[in-house]
């Protein structure tokens, strides 16, 4: 009998996971069922990460395994289901800051969870965010920054989005370093995320994706 996919993925046993997925696909299992199991497993991974049972590299490793599962499953999905369904998210490390590890993890987790992520890199000027929102009509923007100076850049970026008349249709989340309700209020963001999983939940909520 095939081992439990959800548990094996949550335990990050890459080779076993891929073998189970292949076995299930060969037996004609529903690809959506496989993805649902994988999604439950990622929730467990997120919880273990929050409880410091898993560490940052483990979190990224889980995402890489998920990516491989997606590659195996994709050919079996209908065209409509196979395309990205999470919606567009623009993300970048704000002007004056270079810290990108946290941002990269958020990008990665959004990507493996089906979002179409547009990563603007580091030290991103406010205008670049504005231009990208205009170009792509992305409904969600993520601003990352670890320096205290980054709070001012976040505030300026959100003001620039507002000045360009784009704020009403754009939800903004911030993250990195020390985040709090005060900083959220100061910058004018809609929400803050203390980790990548919160970023994914917010993006899901705002785009109405399950």
């Amino acid at each position: 009998m095939a081992k439990d996919l959800c548990k094996t993925l949550a335990d990050l046993k890459e080779d076993e996971v891929l073998a189970i997925v292949q076995e299930k696909l060969n037996a004609g299992a529903d690809p959506m069922g496989i993805l649902a199991d994988a999604s439950r497993a990622m929730e467990i991974v997120g919880n273990r990460f929050s409880k410091s049972e898993y560490f940052i590299p483990d979190l990224v490793y889980s995402g890489e395994i998920l990516k491989k599962i997606n590659e195996l499953v994709k050919p079996k999905l209908t065209e409509e289901v196979g395309t990205k369904k999470g919606g567009k998210v623009i993300i970048g490390t704000v002007a004056g800051d270079i810290h990108d590890i946290g941002k990269d993890i958020v990008v990665f987790m959004l990507d493996v969870n089906g979002f179409d992520v547009i990563d603007l890199g580091v030290d991103v000027p406010a205008q670049k965010f504005v231009d990208k929102i205009k170009e792509t009509s992305a409904p969600v923007v993520g601003l990352s920054g670890f320096l205290t100076l980054a709070y001012d850049s976040m505030k300026q970026t959100i003001e620039a989005i507002k000045a360009a008349g784009l704020r009403d249709n754009t939800k903004v989340m911030i993250g990195g370093g020390q985040m709090s309700d005060e900083i959220k209020k100061y910058t004018g963001a809609d929400a803050f995320g203390k980790d990548a999983m919160v970023g994914v939940s917010l993006a899901r909520e705002w785009t109405g994706t399950k």
Binding site: L12, E14, S52, F55, I56, P57, D58, Y61
Partner: peptide
């Protein structure tokens, strides 16, 4: 610097 708090439980793949 890889983010392993307590430096334990590093899995062999990593």
């Amino acid at each position: 610097r890889e983010g392993f708090r307590g430096y334990t439980r590093i899995r062999p793949e990593i």
